[in-house]
Design a protein around this nucleic acid. Structure first.
Length: 311
DNA sequence: AACAAAGGCAACCGCCGACTC
DNA sequence: CGAGTCGGCGGTTGCCTTTGT
């Protein structure tokens, strides 16, 4: 890393920094499609990019990967992030591993902006607040020295309700506190996220992943996967359509590609789906669009949640 | 309409562990 | 065993956009 900078200083190679241009993206995409992932330094060199390998890796992972899901976080994802953070702390990569299609950077940004702002607006949402957050005073920090904040699911939903203006969650008129207590049975703290095995890493092997356990099949209905062998993440249908209702994954051209159209990444002007030679992983006959996640409808169909019938 | 503040997000930085030679 | 390299991670920065006044 520093060595690359040294080279730069010696004038051998001038490495670019800052925002990526459409041409750079095109080079990286084409190279990755042609050669696949390898040594990032080689990729940067061989793809003709005047970037360090690290920069290429970051760009690909956080932005160009075809399996990325873009758009606003769904209420489900928000709740999941909050819950996982309460267990994992700032281990963004681990949290991201349980949110397929989302990157650690994305989640980190979401946390550092949206969540922290909501916490701030909510006032008491701090480690010193006993009403919303409880801390284990006997062991305020885990072994790594990280501060642990224990947040109950009730708090999570309170936050979500408070944030209803910015998300599509709809809870107005709902008057059943029991739902507030346990709106998402799968978010119960009894889940040992540290021992969930294996995590939903893209390279993860067979087994039940956290997200892989769930499949959205229609609005407001979530099924538990009965198949003991959960498919790899890429093929796990556990997403809802993003709130923007646009593309289901990486290429919401207008909004996310530095405001340039990535559709012309190919010389022939083919679309990104064609360039990647893959179908949209979030589309297909097995995928049912959900649109906005209407929690009211969800709760009306509460009987569809096997776990919720216990309440 | 103009300006400032806040929000959102892409990208960089520094550190660390794993691996190789 | 130590140095070098690489990939990965979390923290942070800075730019652009949006919102408020």
């Amino acid at each position: 890393m520093g060595k690359e900078k040294m080279k730069n200083n010696n004038g051998k190679t001038k490495l670019r920094k800052g925002l990526w241009s459409p041409e750079e993206d095109e080079k990286l995409i084409k190279y990755m499609l042609r050669n696949g992932q390898g040594c990032w330094s080689d990729i940067a060199r061989n793809a003709g990019l005047e970037r360090c390998g690290k920069s290429c890796r970051l760009r690909w992972i956080n932005y160009l990967r075809p399996d990325l899901k873009r758009g606003a976080f769904t209420p489900y994802e928000e709740a999941l992030i909050l819950h996982l953070h309460s267990n994992l702390g700032n281990r963004w990569s681990q949290i991201a591993a349980r949110l397929p299609g989302r990157t650690d950077n994305e989640i980190k940004n979401f946390w550092n902006s949206t969540v922290k702002r909501r916490l701030k607006n909510n006032g008491n949402y701090s480690t010193s607040s006993s009403s919303h957050v409880s801390t284990d005073e006997s062991n305020p920090k885990e072994a790594t020295g990280r501060e642990i904040v224990f947040m109950h699911d009730r708090d999570i939903m309170a936050m979500l309700m408070d944030s209803s203006s910015s998300s599509s969650i709809s809870m107005h008129g709902m008057a059943t506190p029991n739902y507030l207590n346990y709106p998402f049975p799968f978010l119960d703290n009894s889940y040992d996220v540290f021992n969930m095995s294996p995590p939903c890493l893209p390279q993860g092997g067979a087994g039940e992943g956290y997200c892989g356990d769930f499949t959205f099949v229609e609005a407001g209905v979530m099924e538990l996967e009965s198949d003991p062998i959960t498919p790899p993440l890429e093929s796990t249908r556990c997403f809802v359509e993003n709130n923007a209702g646009s593309d289901h994954y990486a290429f919401d051209h207008k909004k996310y590609c530095n405001n340039y159209p990535l559709a012309n990444v190919d010389d022939q002007g083919s679309k990104i789906e064609d360039v990647f030679e893959v179908g949209n992983p979030w589309q297909g006959e097995n995928y049912s669009k959900m649109g906005e996640w209407d929690l009211e409808g969800l709760l009306e169909n509460v009987s569809s949640f096997p776990c919720l019938t216990d309440f």
